[in-house]
Simulated scan of single mutants.
Amino acid sequence: MQDSKTILITGGAIGLGKELTKAYAGQGHRVVICGRTETALQEMCGPHQNVVPICADLACPAGRRALVDAVYAGQRPLDLLIHNAAIQLPHDFQQQGGLLEQVETELAVNLLAPIELTLELLPLLKQSASPQVAFVTSALARVPKRSAPIYCATKAGLSIFTRALRYQLEGTGITVSEIVPDLLRTRMAAGRDLKALPVKEAARQIVKGLGKGETEIRLGRVAFLYTLHRLAPRFAYRLLKAS
């Protein structure tokens, strides 16, 4: 049994976050998870007594504050912070109805929340003997698609923030990692499952990579896509444009 750590996973009750929660809880770690749906959070606690659920909406300041306060209330160092929560909404900028509210929500969950939570929780990370913070970005940060311009933009911003934060925290002992998944078999990939990577396998690779202290974890076909983008960017853009 490994030494027990305290791990916070945003969006830890569904999709990739759920598999990461199961993996770390299965290793005996104390896993704090947050999400908007109480029933999904409670389902994770049944088989895993070391999972701590926090119902919080990261799209609003009050939800982010509630999460931070709950983590501090645990009175433990934070060993690993995984920013996994994200939403992807389709946007057509030629149709303006209701667009602004959706844009603000997507920006808040995908970009503002990871930045704000990192800032607020850095003191707890610094109390750990081997602190890590990881950001789940996307290959769409480099090669965007037409239907989700805000999602692509937020992931691009998060990718750049991850690297800049890594520069700032050099010498502090805090490892800053970027996780770039392939298309995963989650609700977000509905209708494209045949090309998607199983989330359980993705979680296994992420846990392994973070355990080794890797700062860049690229899953599935991401490495190939990045190479293609470097050598033939126009072809790469055409390939994902309508994905």
Rank of each mutant, 00 (worst) to 15 (best):
F135D: 02
K155F: 03
T10A: 06
G74K: 03
R238P: 01
K212W: 05
A153N: 07
K208I: 02
A203E: 00
V143F: 06
R192F: 11
V199T: 13
E178D: 15
G97T: 15
F93A: 10
V31D: 00
S4Q: 14
Q127P: 04
V31I: 12
R187D: 14
P61M: 02
R234Q: 13
L228T: 06
T137I: 06
A40Q: 12
L119K: 15
A196C: 07
R234M: 08
G35C: 10
A25W: 00
T21K: 09
N110W: 04
P233G: 11
I82M: 05
G26Y: 07
L81K: 07
A113H: 08
A70V: 07
G220H: 03
A190H: 13
P123H: 01
G173Y: 03
E214G: 07
V109A: 01
I9V: 01
R166K: 13
G211H: 04
G209N: 05
A190S: 12
Y151E: 11
V207N: 00
Q205I: 02
A189S: 15
P47V: 01
Q205W: 08
Q95E: 15
I206S: 05
Y226S: 09
T137L: 04
Y151L: 10
P198T: 00
C34Q: 06
A23P: 00
Q205E: 15
A232G: 00
C55G: 09
V68S: 09
L165K: 03
E214T: 07
T154P: 03
D69L: 12
L169K: 08
L219A: 02
V143N: 02
P198R: 05
K18M: 03
R185H: 11
V207A: 05
F224W: 15
I174Y: 03
D182W: 04
P233N: 12
P53M: 07
R185Q: 15
A13T: 01
G211Q: 11
L197P: 01
L119I: 11
I160V: 14
V71K: 09
L117G: 07
T39K: 13
M1S: 13
T37G: 04
I115N: 05
R163A: 12
A232T: 14
K155W: 03
E116T: 09
S4E: 08
I160M: 13
R234D: 14
Q94V: 11
I82D: 10
Q95V: 13
P181R: 06
I217D: 00
A232K: 13
I217P: 02
M44Q: 12
L89V: 12
D79V: 08
A236K: 10
K18H: 10
E116G: 06
I9M: 04
L210I: 07
V103S: 06
Y72K: 14
K195T: 08
L41A: 09
D69S: 15
E116K: 08
Q95Y: 12
V133R: 05
R163T: 09
P144N: 10
L16D: 02
L140R: 09
Q27T: 09
S177I: 07
V222L: 04
L100F: 14
A203W: 00
G74I: 12
P47A: 13
S243R: 11
F161I: 01
